[in-house]
Amino acid sequence: MSSQKSVLVCQNTACRKAGATKVLAAFQASPVADITVIGSRCLGQCGNGPMVVVMPEEVWYGRVHAEEVPAVVERHLRGGCPVAGMLYRKFH
């Protein structure tokens, strides 16, 4: 089993309407070594997006805005500490 970290950003219709394309672009513009950013298919949480999931630890973020991405990159992806105020409440 791979411990490769990845960031999934839903690119399905509802999330795209909420700005997921900009969220994906913001993650891609702030690359982190050994972390892959992936535009994903529907993550099954329509209406709460844009949805972002950090794998393999399965940390979910809901209603993510592009301007919030730097906080996730710095605090979570680089610093190892999920951004508590942005966590998707259904799963955390």
Score class of each variant (00 low, 15 high):
Glu68Asp: 14
Met86Ser: 00
Val83Phe: 01
Val54Arg: 04
Ala25Ile: 00
Ala71Pro: 00
Trp60Phe: 11
Ile38Pro: 03
Glu68Ile: 06
Glu67Ala: 14
Arg78His: 10
Gly47Ile: 12
Asn48Cys: 09
Gly85His: 06
Gln28Cys: 03
Val69Gln: 04
Gly44Ala: 14
Gly44Lys: 09
Gly62Phe: 04
Arg78Ser: 08
Glu57Met: 03
Glu57Arg: 08
Val69Trp: 05
Met51Leu: 11
His65Gly: 08
Val72Arg: 04
Gly79Ser: 12
Glu67Gly: 11
His76Gly: 05
Cys42His: 10
Arg75His: 12
Val83Met: 01
Val69Ala: 07
Phe27Gln: 02
Val64Ala: 12
Glu67Arg: 09
Glu68Asn: 13
Leu43Trp: 15
Leu77Met: 10
Gly62Lys: 03
Leu43Glu: 14
His65Arg: 15
Pro56Ala: 01
Arg78Gln: 15
Ser40Lys: 14
Gly85Leu: 14
Val54Tyr: 05
Pro70Asp: 05
Glu67Val: 14
Glu67Thr: 12
Ala66Cys: 08
His65Ser: 10
His76Tyr: 10
Leu87Met: 10
Val59Ala: 00
Ala71Gln: 15
Pro50Gly: 07
Thr36Gln: 14
Leu43Tyr: 14
Gly49Tyr: 11
Ala29Pro: 00
Glu67His: 14
Met55Gly: 03
Cys81Phe: 05
Gly85Thr: 09
Met51Lys: 11
Leu77Val: 10
Pro31Asp: 02
Cys46Lys: 14
Met55His: 02
Val64Trp: 07
Asn48Ile: 05
Val59His: 04
Gly39Asp: 04
Ser30Leu: 15
Pro50His: 08
Val52Ile: 09
Gln45Trp: 12
Ala71Leu: 13
Tyr61Phe: 06
Pro50Ile: 03
Glu58Asp: 06
Ala29Tyr: 07
Leu87Arg: 15
Glu58Phe: 15
His76Met: 08
Ser40Ala: 14
Glu58Leu: 11
Phe27Ala: 02
Pro31His: 02
Ala66Val: 07
Ala66Gln: 10
Gly44Gln: 11
Ala66Met: 10
Ala66Phe: 12
Ala26Ser: 14
Ala71Asp: 14
Ala84Ser: 13
Pro70Trp: 09
Ala26Asp: 03
Thr36Glu: 13
Glu68Phe: 07
Ser30Cys: 06
Glu67Lys: 12
Gly79His: 05
Pro50Val: 06
His65Asp: 10
Gly62Thr: 02
Ser40Thr: 11
Ala26Gly: 02
Arg75Thr: 12
Ala84Asn: 07
Val52Ser: 03
Glu67Cys: 11
Pro56Thr: 01
Trp60Ser: 06
Cys46Gly: 07
Val54Ile: 13
Pro31Arg: 00
Ala33Gln: 02
Gly85Gln: 05
Gln45Leu: 09
Ala26Thr: 02
Cys42Gly: 06
Gly47Tyr: 12
Glu68Pro: 00
Gly80Thr: 11
Trp60Leu: 04
Val69Glu: 04
Trp60Pro: 05
Pro82Gly: 00
Gln28Ile: 01
Gly62Asn: 04
Val37Met: 06
Val32Gly: 02
Val59Asp: 02
Leu43Lys: 15
Val53Ser: 02
Glu74Leu: 08
His76Glu: 05
Ala33Leu: 03
Ala25Thr: 00
Ala26Glu: 01
Phe27Asn: 01
Pro56His: 00
Val69Asn: 02
Glu74Arg: 11
Gln45His: 15
Ala25Lys: 03
His65Asn: 11
Ile38Met: 10
Ile38Glu: 08
Arg75Ser: 12
Gln45Arg: 15
Ser30Gly: 00
Cys81Arg: 13
Leu77Asp: 06
Glu58Cys: 09
Val32Cys: 04
Cys46Gln: 10
